[in-house]
Simulated assay, not measured.
Amino acid sequence: MIVKQGGDSVDVVIGTVKGDLHSIGKDLVRIMLEANGFGVLDLGVDVSAGQFAQAVREHSPLIVGLSAFITSARRLLPGMIGEIRAAGSSGMKVLVGGAAVNGAVASEVGADGFSPEAVSTARLVRGIVNAVRR
């Protein structure tokens, strides 16, 4: 499932990582980002590193958001983040969220940030986008 919402540009690419079929948290984040005016490309659930990387190459987002609800999905994050970073620009940020991650895990896996829920994710994204566009 690929859902493009918002303006013409893609500010954020989001998806739930490979092996994880949970979507409610990711969907809430998408809704909050759209409500705040961001262009969001939602890749759905069970998304591979290659699918994320392809979306990054095609849309050049400012931010990629990875959702991991289960521990086995969390274990994939370092490799996925490496592949995503290789496909994107040096200024692109990778954020993680979901029940299987926290701030410490985000740091361990090489993410640029973590948010525990949808409202704070929208604030975090707004801060990153404002800093990039200054």
Score class of each variant (00 low, 15 high):
V105K: 00
S90T: 14
V105R: 05
N102L: 00
G97K: 07
A118T: 08
A87W: 05
R85N: 02
V105W: 05
I84T: 00
K93G: 07
G97S: 08
A99R: 13
A118E: 08
F114P: 08
S89W: 00
A86Q: 14
E117M: 08
A100W: 12
L95Y: 08
R85L: 00
P116M: 02
V101G: 07
E117R: 11
A104I: 10
G97Q: 11
I84Y: 02
A118H: 02
A118I: 02
S90Q: 12
G98C: 08
G98E: 07
N102I: 00
I84F: 00
V94D: 01
G98L: 06
A100S: 14
G110D: 02
A86K: 15
E108L: 14
G110P: 02
V96D: 02
G113D: 10
A100M: 10
S107H: 12
P116G: 08
F114N: 05
E117V: 07
D112F: 13
R85E: 01
A106Y: 00
G98M: 12
A118N: 05
G98S: 10
A100K: 12
S90N: 15
D112R: 15
S90G: 10
A86C: 03
V119L: 15
V96K: 02
V119E: 13
G103I: 00
A99F: 15
V109T: 07
M92Y: 02
G97Y: 01
A99M: 15
A86W: 03
A106H: 09
E108I: 03
L95I: 15
G98P: 06
D112G: 14
A111K: 06
V96A: 04
I84S: 04
A100Q: 09
S120K: 12
M92G: 09
F114C: 12
A111H: 04
I84V: 15
A87I: 04
S89A: 14
G103D: 13
A118L: 06
M92C: 04
V109C: 08
S90A: 15
A87C: 01
G113S: 14
G103S: 14
E108G: 13
A86F: 01
G103K: 11
V119A: 15
G91H: 12
G113W: 06
A99G: 14
A118G: 11
L95F: 13
G91A: 09
S115P: 09
A100T: 07
S107C: 08
E117C: 09
A106N: 08
M92R: 07
M92V: 06
I84N: 02
V96C: 05
